[in-house]
Each structure stands twice: as structure tokens, then as C-alpha cells.
Simulated assay, not measured.
Amino acid sequence: MTATTSDNSADPQPRPSFDWITFLSRWGTLISLGLLIILFSIGRPEVFMTLRNMLNILNQVSILGMIAFGLTICLVVGLFDLSIGAMATFGGYFAARFLMELNVENGFAVVIVILVVLALAALIGMINGALIAYLGISAIVETLAMSFVATGIILGISGGRTVYATEIPEAFTIIGQGKIAGIPNPVLILLLLGFVLWVFLEHTQTGRNMYALGGNREASRLSGISFSRYALIAMAISGACAALGGLVAGANLGAGRPQGVGDVYLLNAFVAVFIGASTMKPGKFHILGTAVGVLLIGVINNGLSVMGVQTFWQYIVQGGILILALISASLNSVRRS
């Protein structure tokens, strides 16, 4: 007698359990943003979730976004830029000062002045990059020192005097106060800048080389990618973006203030970028993530304000979300290693 055994029901492979840590590290920030929007909409439906307030949030974070986008480029290549606050003040003051000295009510003159100011800011950024790349100075220390130098230059030239709205052509203030199709100009500038830098990082060889440097500088060097060259590019972009943010802030205020303009954006810019590094692509600095971080800060500040919550809670909530984002990204990195 022959016994035949057929086993057509082989043990199925165990189905992998859902990876909550990976899911939350990738999407947790966006989920938090969505939950906050729902919470504030329920709390003040007549105020928060209106088109006017949504545009107001975007307008409020537009300057922060411009500065944070430039900072993102630096962090992609592994560099810190603590001079962005001073460079924002630099952009706002010197744009107003040059226009005051020209005393010309002309849109073309405004464009030329803006380009000159942005070029000067990019040049200062390149000096930062050169000192860091060629002399091996710590980026944190060097950019902090440059912020003192820039602040001293502004105060020395201005004598502490603000350039007022009556001394600035209206064509300049329109940049910060005007609208196109009901959308504030600062929001349009932010969207354009974000798109350009997103394309630059994600769809150009220069951007890919920057990511390679940030991932492994030594391996990139052996592959023929020059850190010095990309340090200059990254710091120049950071300086120009910070100056653009300060310039738009000056146009919005209708004044060129010689101090205190950019300082308020320094820490929030870092918060936004690091929150963004835990969004969608954990552990990777990228423009879309920074945009989410900036929007999250704007929603927190605006939502708590319309709810009548005291200001100190804004700092507590921002700090708490940043800590959670960093913990999430850290857990994901540990699991991949």
C-alpha cells in the first residue's frame, strides 16, 4: 500500500504588522497639522476656517517661509546659518535706505534696488561659505560672527535712524501691502520662491549633489563633488532669501528699521526646517517639509490667538511639536541603522 501525502495548504507567510513608527515619522506632522485645523475650526468656526483667515495665516508666515526656505538649502549640505536674522534686517533696511537716497518714484528703480540688495546679501553669504569651506571655520561660529558684523554695519550707517514710509516710494510698499486677485503679494512671492527652490533641489544636478554632500561629504568628495563650491552656493542662497524676507517685511511695514526685524524669525526658521525634516521624508531636509513646518507654526499662532489663548502657550505648543517631531525622526533613524 502506498501512502500519498499531499499538503497543498503550506503555512502562509506571517503578514507583517503595521509599522506605526515609520508611519508616524513620515506623516505625523501632517496629521498634527490636520488635527489642529479641525480643533481650531470647531473652537471658532466663524473666524478660523474662513478664506480671509486662511489668507491671513499665509500672509503672516510668508516672511518666515522665505527665510526658512533659504536656510533649508544650507542644512541640506550640512551647514548652519545663524546670520539669517541679521541678513533679514540688512535687506529691509538697505532697500529702504537706497530708495530714500535715490528719491525716485519709479518702479524700475525699485526693481534695480531690490536686485542690488539681494546681490549684496548673496555676496555676504558667499563670504560666509568661503570662510567655512576654505579655512575650515565652524559654520555656527562664523555665521554668528557675521551676524554681529552685519548688525554693526547697519547700525553704523543708519545711526539707529529708521527710514519712514514718507521717504520710501509707494512702488516699494506695494510689494508688502498689495494684492493680486485678492492674494497678498508676500504670499505670491513665497509660493514662487518655494517652487523655484523645490525644482532646484529636487530636479537639478546641483541639488542632487547638495543632497549627496549632506549625506556623506567624504564619499561625495571622492566622487568629485566639491564641497567648497556648493558651500558658497548654499550660503549665497541663504543670505539672499533672508534679505528677501526682510525686504518684504520692510515693504509691509512701510519702513526700513535698522534693528530687530530679522531676529524674531531666526529661531522659528530653524524650528520650521527641523519640523519639516520629519515630514514625508524623515531625516531629510526638503522644501515641501519646510513649507509644512512653516504652515504648522502659522496655524498654531493664529489658532491660539483667535481662541483667546495666552501667548506663552504658542511657544509651549511649538516646542512640544518640535520635540515630538525630532523624537519621531530619531526613532526612525535608529530603526534603519
Rank of each mutant, 00 (worst) to 15 (best):
T311S: 14
I316C: 11
G303N: 00
A291I: 08
G303T: 06
S305T: 15
N301I: 07
L304W: 08
M307H: 11
V294F: 10
Q314N: 12
V299R: 08
V299L: 07
Q310G: 08
Q314H: 09
I300W: 06
T311C: 08
V309F: 14
V309H: 04
L304N: 05
N301C: 08
A291T: 12
L296P: 01
L288E: 05
M307K: 12
F312T: 00
I297Q: 15
G289C: 12
N302S: 00
Q314K: 15
S305K: 12
I297R: 07
G289F: 09
G293D: 10
W313S: 00
Q310T: 13
N301T: 13
F312S: 01
L295D: 07
L296N: 01
T311F: 15
M307I: 13
T290R: 10
I300H: 08
Y315H: 05
I287E: 04
T311P: 14
V306L: 06
A291S: 10
L304M: 11
G308K: 03
V294N: 02
A291W: 08
L296I: 03
V299N: 05
I316M: 15
Y315F: 12
T311G: 10
G308H: 09
I287C: 03
N301G: 14
I297T: 11
G303A: 01
S305A: 11
T311L: 15
I316T: 14
I287W: 02
G293C: 13
V294K: 09
G298V: 03
N302F: 03
T290V: 09
A291G: 13
I287G: 07
G303E: 00
G298Y: 07
L304S: 03
L295Q: 10
V309I: 13
